[in-house]
Design a binder for these strands. Sequence first.
DNA 1: TAGATTTGTGCAATCGATTGCATTTTTTAT
DNA 2: ATAAAAAATGCAATCGATTGCACAAATCTA
Lengths: 341, 341
Amino acid sequence: MHKKLEPTIHDIARELKISASTVSRALQNNPRISQKTREKIAITAETMGYRPNSMASNLRNKKSNTIGIVVPLINRYFFASVISGVEEVAFKAGYNVVISQSNDLYDKEISIVHSMLAIRVDGLIISIAMQTTTFDHLKIFRKKNIPLVFFDRIVPEIETNKIVVDDCMGAFRITQHLIDQGYQRIGHIAGPQNLTTYQDRRKGYMEALAKNGIAYDESLVVTNSLTLEDGEKAAQYFMGLPDPPDAVFCSNDTTALSAMIYVRDKGIRIPEDFGIVGFSNEPFSRVVTPSISTIAQPAFLMGQKAAELILNQIEHKEKTFKTLVLPSEMILRESSKRKKD
Amino acid sequence: MHKKLEPTIHDIARELKISASTVSRALQNNPRISQKTREKIAITAETMGYRPNSMASNLRNKKSNTIGIVVPLINRYFFASVISGVEEVAFKAGYNVVISQSNDLYDKEISIVHSMLAIRVDGLIISIAMQTTTFDHLKIFRKKNIPLVFFDRIVPEIETNKIVVDDCMGAFRITQHLIDQGYQRIGHIAGPQNLTTYQDRRKGYMEALAKNGIAYDESLVVTNSLTLEDGEKAAQYFMGLPDPPDAVFCSNDTTALSAMIYVRDKGIRIPEDFGIVGFSNEPFSRVVTPSISTIAQPAFLMGQKAAELILNQIEHKEKTFKTLVLPSEMILRESSKRKKD
DNA sequence: TAGATTTGTGCAATCGATTGCATTTTTTAT
DNA sequence: ATAAAAAATGCAATCGATTGCACAAATCTA
């Protein structure tokens, strides 16, 4: 017995002694095909185990039914959650989701983006790599008019849909919280300043200081890549200052954690003697001791919204671009609450 | 000016006044085309911004260059890491990765798997849903001879490539560790027993008891879905027993964590009065207080291996199936080390 | 220089589904 | 019963890349 191939509409047509066009139309429930034939075809298709070949219809329709998503790292909780949200919405709408990760490398990002173009994704959702500072590879999408959505790490100079959380406001509020708790000298661990995300967090920090009449002290701001090691080094730097800070706002929870461990191991009490807050609400920040105050970003929602935006562009040919700013939520925990309420 | 379409090989052919076949061959570096023509074509393709339409070639070649991956939940660290590993290997090999999540629901899994068939994935990598107990939707792959790889949550009755960690051994060793630490009555929080993963962890636990001449006490084993709440409830149950255990081996870190918090909040000292160990090495287990002893699974490696297996099947038409058992690693932390070494 | 090779290109069919237009069949009106 | 209108179906081209085979051009042989 030779290999059994997948049945096609032609096989169904032959079986029923009708034309392939009729089969095609019937399967799409085209009203021009009589009810009777449609049912007959549906049944035959079912019994023959027919499944439409999407490569063929995609080719003909010039539509891949695929959404691409590019993130720095898939196994980062925030990004994984965004992907999860995208998948949920896309799947319901009948789209497939192709993923790839840049590992925060510029060259890989370029390579990925080109591959996404090659497979003719109907739209691309992307959060750019830390390394990325030029954007020709993304401008192609605008030129070719392929829907493009940036999330979290956006590119201001490209006009398209964008979704961010209110980084500035989040940073402002949590810095204000530190001030409210009576901390006097507040340091900041800032992330790469080529990313608006981290620019904004820094801005929120500075605005909170300004609003409370606290002078901005550049020596209290450390800029790095926000790894565990970076957090520890920053903490070490802070503690070595002649007049060290008594609290620090970290641009992510990872550095908040390693800084906290460093400070704690120095025998400094948290939050009594030193306050720490992070950003992102990583799962661990809730369960470490002391638990870390932070800003929660609605990652899953962000993914859903990103998918909705891109689907609108794809299907309704929405022409206007918006920038969604999703609200962040301040979550206060042990690491910064030294006042009793 | 009307819409500028993507150039095709026909456009290149027209431009150079040659045939599309020649262009096609030249772009594939077919030696039958002269060096000179090949270069000419390469240059024209470049200047025209030509990108092969993969839908067209996929259709013709009956190959989608796509690997599907189905996991219960994308934003679970373990699964996200596996996906990350798959993506890395697949991308290097020129394959795209399409993802979908079952949310541990049987019906969604079926729906996803059918959609993967519809887009004609060249292979599927899957970890089945907790709910899944019948497997017709997966047997289709065997029938149609589409490469299939199970990882972590496998289906024993389907003969194909599989990758697991040594759950039984991991469970055995960490239970043995508890015994070595002098714990006498060791409980177990078991996961859904329709999954081999959790069967094996339970088996390892029982074997360790047996080896040490400890009678198996059914009242010390709780089976549930391993959520945070389940862990807390289990702990509550254990502590309410007339003769409660003095240690517990939890089938995942999530229940280990919530059980630990419950026990700790009861004022019981960990590890002095009560030992806790988990499974999976979730990122948080290292940073909570006390840190949780656990079994690390090489998730990223698992993803890489899964991709390699499936690529071998796809490209070299490898006929034999193997079951890779990756070694797990025992990571001892504060929650179970009460003896000084 | 004619004939045999080798090398380079092109023709046309193919992959499977879709669709404008033409054609056939059925229904309705007169 | 017959023309006109409506409904159902089929033909053939198309989407873009690939490839077996045929044919043409260049090179070699005697």
